[in-house]
Nucleic acid binder design. Structure first.
Lengths: 224, 224
DNA sequence: ACCTGAACACCGTTCAAGT
DNA sequence: ACCTGAACACCGTTCAAGT
């Protein structure tokens, strides 16, 4: 029996999530998967929170690199966001956990930084870029949360108290969520034009020196 | 000591949430607040889920009535949404619970129905109305979830690995979230114009007969 | 250094028993 | 009809003890 390592623990955690879902990922279940006592995990991770953070880091490592480095700002933003959403959509429970508890942790901060870079390259002023980023993130987060919501009854079978939902039920039940998401994303991007649109490339006056934005993040903000 | 009723239980639940937060609302804590055993609650509510649903019903009862019955569709939508958000923002933890677990339950369905009515009155086709509703809800939900996210470190104190977030930190930390939300809402509403805009009032061909949309909802969809 | 075993302080929930 | 008490099957976490 090989000795316990962080890598082995995270791999086992992924296996447990695949088998029993995100809620089934308890310290005891994870320990059983590893053939070990639950308390043994505390030697490698300070607690459940830290373990999940490690899992998130592993699952989102390649997310930011999806952002193309060149092109029109709205195309770059669209690519970053749709890639990110399609990746996170595969683990919606994990995505919701990230969103609700890790909003200011490195994996998420990397996405903020990447989107901000795109907006600023596109000619947005700092305030407008922050605002645009906030609006886009709100939309993305809402989508991810809804993707994780329990299916519930079909809209067309609702009680008569909801006549419009009922009448539009068939259309409601068959709508393509990906298409809906992208239509909304387009709507927002179109409405968020910078005052002075610029082609990518030339630097902005107020933009600080920055290194490679896409490099590996520090494990937590304390390291920085 | 008065006998236990659903009303008394819900009132006590509100008191517990005020004192110990949403996470502190356990069956045992609620029982203690009522001077009763935890198991006594199961005589009145089938379980925790049902009890929380009762709490939600109580807290959101007046939400839908904020929608003005007349005026331009976008003004009506804006009023419905901003009122709803400002109400739910006062109990963000509860709001997130509603969103993530009660997405198809009556209190939320009422909001869907109300927004759908506004869009259809505004001239949206069924498909477009559903799509617009989906986009708007995604944005609103994202905002509510972010409002509940842990504050975390100030943006301006982030490590150097996030140069743009750091540089824009002061602006980031002082931004008015309500204003940001409303700017985004305007952006979306502006982008979501119906193909054939109409003044409120005249009926749409395909709109089914419907009674008073704003009446009290059935307690659960099973009742309908 | 790395892991076990027992224990603590919690959860939601069930169910027989009391009044 | 309405509530209690004991118990079940879980949680995350701590800590002394083993090797």
């Amino acid at each position: 029996m090989a000795t316990l390592t962080k890598t082995r623990i995270i791999d086992a955690a992924i296996a447990v999530v695949d088998e029993h879902g995100f809620d089934g990922l308890t310290m005891r279940a994870l320990a059983e998967q590893l053939g070990v006592t639950a308390t043994a995990l505390y030697y490698h991770y300070a607690g459940r929170e830290e373990l999940l953070a490690g899992l998130v880091e592993h699952q989102t490592a390649t997310l930011v690199q999806a952002a193309p480095a060149e092109g029109a700002w709205d195309e770059r933003a669209r690519t970053l966001i749709t890639t990110m959403v399609s990746e996170l959509d595969r683990q919606p429970e994990l995505a919701v956990w990230i969103i609700t508890t890790q909003a200011r942790q490195p994996p998420v901060l990397q996405l903020h930084e990447a989107l901000l870079a795109i907006l600023i390259d596109g000619g947005f002023s700092p305030r407008d870029a922050i605002e645009a980023k906030g609006i886009l993130f709100r939309y993305v987060i809402g989508h991810l949360v809804l993707a994780n919501a329990p299916e519930g009854q079909p809209w067309r079978q609702l009680p008569e108290h909801y006549p419009l939902l009922r009448a539009t039920g068939p259309a409601h039940d068959t709508i393509d969520r990906v298409q809906l998401f992208e239509r909304g994303l387009d709507t927002i991007l179109t409405g968020l034009r910078p005052e002075v649109p610029r082609a990518g490339g030339s630097p902005n006056q107020w933009v600080p020196d920055r290194g490679v934005v896409l490099g590996p993040a520090p494990r937590s903000w304390h390291d920085g």
